[in-house]
Write a protein that binds this DNA or RNA. Structure first.
Length: 893
RNA sequence: GGACGAUUAGCUCAGUUGGUUAGAGCACUUCUCUUACAAAGAAGGGGUCACUGGUUCGAGUCCAGUAUCGUCCACCA
């Protein structure tokens, strides 16, 4: 196809779906179909599975871009490259969402029953999954759909059940009673990090349990005081020292209490009265104090957030109602000493925002401190710390990028407590434990009616923690337990585990990344991934988190519709650095759309110029012009830099360098030169080769347009599987010595000499750097008359000399490219000129003073690298001669 | 209370082991319909690199402290 047939404006809508279909049908997203030598290295990424709760947002889009860049780059570099897509059932999130929908229809999960409700959820999840899959494709993600996985499908379920069983056998999983975070709305436990803290104003009440009780206490939750069994004070507190160890009996609001005075370092003397009423059943730290001091544990509030039976008139009231009543009673009995408003951080459910209620409850836990043979007699915690610190199981340490997050990881892991893995919701992996009276079975008793299965499900992170290896099994029988160990018996597992890199947002470092390290090191005695690349969050233009309630959400699909996927991709990774948040707005995307279009037009121009078959000829080095050699040097440099940047995860830098080359070096300079220079066979080859190379280099970043242009070049192979550009391709051309030997350069020397002569005659001003000089030759008269026009030709020309001698205007460009200073002949406004020159002279003098000072410093000449010293000397000499010239010029003025 | 980050042009941000007189995009000013591209091109203005010290021949870059903003963790009875 020739350039004329191609539209001036690139239309992504006509191209993207078509191209994605071609890729998919080619089968090359699947590494099995890549034509590679036996021993090719593998490269693998698992897609952090998006929740099946709806649609993708910009954060997802960003994540897919980074991963697709890596995957496409590695695929082109000859790796056996696998990117596994999937979705996460996101237990609580999904169930909450469906319950909300049901509520609008006047139903609830309880009215439907477990089976029907799960059918509803599954239907919702399926719809959501389809949307997500479609959106992922729209982003251009080159993942292998034949290996798609779901955290709740049959295969993953088998992996989950197997690991649960193994952990139970190793006594790493236990069932126990502990105060857990209970969400009365979701009716489920929450892990510690699923609880959010929000500052709210609450009332703090100070009172005594009864009249002659010696110590007043302060609390924001008077209703829980019905279950108090102790009062804790700081052991250093002089006020209460005498009471420590004593026990008091009395009646509080109609309830008999036995209160022991205990000492605990965690009690702050300055807060309230410095004495804390200990309610072991409804507070985490109180629970710990109770364990330490062997206190009774009295449960006051039930799972519905209501006061339990046995608390007189309070029974059946909600916690809030009970609080009002208790306060009323305290006032009636004139026990209240103080009532004040304080800012208090309360715990709320990260899903629904309901205040969480700490409750003692029978739950399943993973013991993170118990040493186990499977981990070489280390605990889960120790192994996970080592994995990132120095490496485990003969693997190098896991690298977290940016590295500063390693510190966060250690801090979190060091403080890790036993992980509560059971959830009282229905949607999820049901706990594989059966009960019959006191008996417990880990064997499947589904067919035996005398056994009853645990009604709870597993924390969603239990299954997503196994994501890197559970996705590498493609059938149930590839998951086995052999000699008490989990084995994934598949070729995929052998080739692709551990995965090369985990790319995700820093916000789920603890939720997910840490959980993956926990589950993988235990289950298969290996690390899940070698590198972790953490990207920042995508924020709106004001630096706020995008959220539906704020109405500041940019929908990736809308943006794709408007500007094309490639533009959206560019806007997401250029200008953002690892671990740092990035802002995005429509204008930014529009800007990159313009760049994408530029690339389109570059290719139109090049293809029209080189025509067909031109690239077959051989390059004769002696025929190369200065510009040719210059651009070859640039592209070689570019290939090296971009490759290095990609290896170092410097996506943004790579993108910027590519943009710089494409726009400034290639389009604005070389193509402009090419317009003037004769069309040699060499020039056509170079134009063609450079176009090909930049298409390849750009492909991982903007796959659609590059593939489309590639197809217009009538290539046999898809760009998708082309070889990454290598320097060797350019080795036949050595461009290094172009500035001294080349005959074109000699010509420019002549020009310079001529200019120097003119300068000596004071016909030109000596300071202003000119952008070009045009030797018009026979066209002199014509061009002279059209000076304005020429100035604005896209040649970088703003000021110019027009001389009759010389041959081709293009020589001017050689001069510029070789860094020659060229000067302007002009009628000069002497006053203005004097002013300007004086100012410049002053600047230059400052500069030389600066240099002089540095050079006269003995320490500098002694200690600075010789190279730097020489460089500075050179600069000084040049500056000095410039000053002399300028002074002379000023005099003459 | 603990940890981490940010502070560079009007705005959004780069600046990789310390080394020219600190960069880009957008915005702004001026010019140009020009045979790849007006979704374009050319030229130009604009910065005490938050502040204070220190290390160094040399600091936007390294160290210490201060201020402001932000994020996370823990606690808040």
């Amino acid at each position: 196809m020739t350039a004329k047939e191609l539209p001036k404006i690139y239309d992504p809508k006509k191209v993207e779906d078509k191209i994605y279909k071609i890729w998919e049908e080619s089968g090359f997203f699947n590494p099995d179909n890549l034509d590679l030598p036996e021993n090719s290295p593998s490269y693998s990424i698992v897609l952090p599975p998006p929740n099946v709760t709806g649609t993708l947002h910009m954060g997802h889009a960003a994540m897919m871009v980074y991963q697709d860049i890596l995957i496409r780059y590695k695929r082109m570099s000859g790796f056996r490259t696998l990117w596994i897509p999937g979705t996460d059932h996101a237990a609580i999130a999904t169930q909450t969402k469906v319950e909300k929908i049901l509520k609008e229809k006047g139903a609830s999960r309880h009215s439907l029953g477990r089976e029907k409700f799960l059918a509803e959820v599954n239907k919702f999840a399926q719809d959501s999954h389809d949307t997500i899959k479609n959106q992922t494709k729209k982003m251009g993600s080159s993942c292998d759909w034949s290996r798609e996985a779901f955290t709740l499908d049959e295969i993953r379920n088998k992996a989950v059940n197997s690991v649960f069983k193994l952990m139970h056998e190793d006594e790493l999983i236990y069932r126990g009673e502990r105060v857990i975070n209970w969400c009365p709305r979701c009716h489920s436990t929450l892990a510690d990090d699923e609880v959010e803290h929000k500052n709210r104003e609450t009332q703090l009440f100070t009172f005594r349990y009864w009249k002659d009780f010696p110590i007043p206490i302060s609390t924001t939750r008077p209703e829980t005081k019905l279950g108090d069994t102790a009062v804790a004070v700081n052991p250093k507190d002089e006020r209460y020292k005498e009471f420590i160890g004593q026990e008091f009996l009395g009646n509080f609001c109609g309830i008999d209490l036995k209160i022991k005075i205990i000492a605990d370092r965690n009690v702050e003397m300055d807060f309230g009265t410095g004495a804390l009423g200990v309610t072991p059943a409804h507070s985490m730290i109180d629970w710990k104090m109770a364990k330490d001091n062997d206190l009774n544990i009295i449960k006051v509030i039930d799972e519905d957030g209501k006061i339990k039976e046995g608390f007189g008139e309070f029974a059946g009231l909600t916690a809030f109602e009970a609080r009002k009543l208790v306060v009323e009673k305290i006032k009636q009995n004139s026990l209240l000493e103080k009532e004040e408003n304080i800012q208090n951080a309360i715990s709320v459910c990260y899903r629904c925002g309901t205040s969480i209620e700490p409750l003692p409850s029978l739950q399943w836990f993973i013991d993170v401190n118990k040493k186990t043979e499977k981990l070489n007699n280390k605990s889960i915690k120790e192994t996970c710390l080592e994995a990132v610190e120095k490496g485990v199981f003969d693997r190098e340490k896991i690298n977290i990028i940016p590295q500063r997050f390693e510190k966060n990881y250690f801090q979190w892991m060091n403080n890790l407590e036993d992980w509560c893995i059971s959830r009282q919701i229905w949607y999820g992996h049901r706990i594989p434990v059966w009960y019959k009276g006191e008996e417990i079975s880990l064997e499947d008793k589904s067919n035996d009616a005398s056994w009853e299965r645990d009604s709870d499900t597993l924390d969603t992170w239990f299954s997503s923690g196994m994501w890197t290896f559970s996705t590498l099994a493609q059938s149930l029988d590839e998951i086995k337990i052999e000699n008490g160990k989990l084995v994934i018996d598949s070729n995929d597992f052998k080739s692709f585990h551990p995965t090369s890199v985990l790319e995700t947002g820093y916000d789920i470092l603890f939720f997910w990344v840490a959980r993956m390290i926990i589950m993988t090191t235990y289950a298969i005695n290996d690390i899940p991934f070698q590198d972790v690349y953490l990207h920042g969050l995508v924020l709106d233009e004001n630096g706020k988190k995008m959220s539906k309630s704020l109405g500041n959400v940019l929908d990736p699909l809308d943006m794709i519709e408007k500007f094309g996927t490639d533009a959206v991709r560019l806007s997401l990774f250029i200008g953002s650095t690892p671990g740092n948040d990035t802002r995005i707005n429509e204008e930014k995307i529009e800007n990159y759309r313009n760049f994408v279009n530029k690339l389109w037009n570059i290719s139109r121009f090049v293809t029209s110029k080189i025509g067909d078959g031109a690239t077959e000829a051989k390059i004769e080095e002696k025929n190369l012009t200065f510009a040719d050699k210059w651009i070859i040097d640039k592209i070689k440099n570019l290939i090296t830099e971009v490759t290095l940047d990609l290896e170092k995860y410097n996506f943004s830098l790579a993108g910027e360098k590519l943009q710089e080359f494409t726009k400034n070096d290639f389009a604005d300079w070389y193509l402009e030169v090419a317009k003037f220079e004769t069309n040699t066979a060499e020039k056509n080859i170079i134009l063609g080769k450079i176009l090909e190379d930049i298409l390849k280099l750009w492909h991982p970043f903007i796959p659609f347009i590059t593939e489309e242009i590639w197809s217009n070049l009538s290539k046999e192979k898809l760009l998708l599987i082309e070889n990454w550009p290598a320097l060797e391709n350019w080795n036949e051309i050595t461009a290094k010595d172009y500035d001294s030997k080349d005959n074109v350069f000699e010509k420019t020397q002549t020009i310079i000499t001529a200019i120097r002569n003119l300068r000596a005659e004071n016909k030109i001003e000596p300071t202003k750097k000119l952008k070009t000089i045009i030797y018009a030759g026979d066209d002199f008269e014509k061009i002279k008359n059209e000076e304005i026009l020429i100035k604005n030709l896209r040649t970088g020309v703003s000021e110019l000399i027009i001389e009759k001698s010389g041959e081709k205007p293009a020589e001017a460009l050689y001069a510029i490219a070789s860094g020659v200073e060229i000067y302007l002949i002009n009628e000069i406004d002497k006053d203005a000129e004097r002013k300007r020159i004086s100012a410049e002279l002053e600047n230059l003098k400052k500069y030389t003073a600066n240099l002089n000072q540095r050079l006269s410093n003995k320490e500098f000449t002694k200690k600075a690298p010789a190279q730097i010293v020489a460089q500075e000397k050179e600069r000084l000499a040049k500056a000095q001669s410039d000053i002399l010239e300028m002074e002379k010029y000023l005099e003459k003025l």
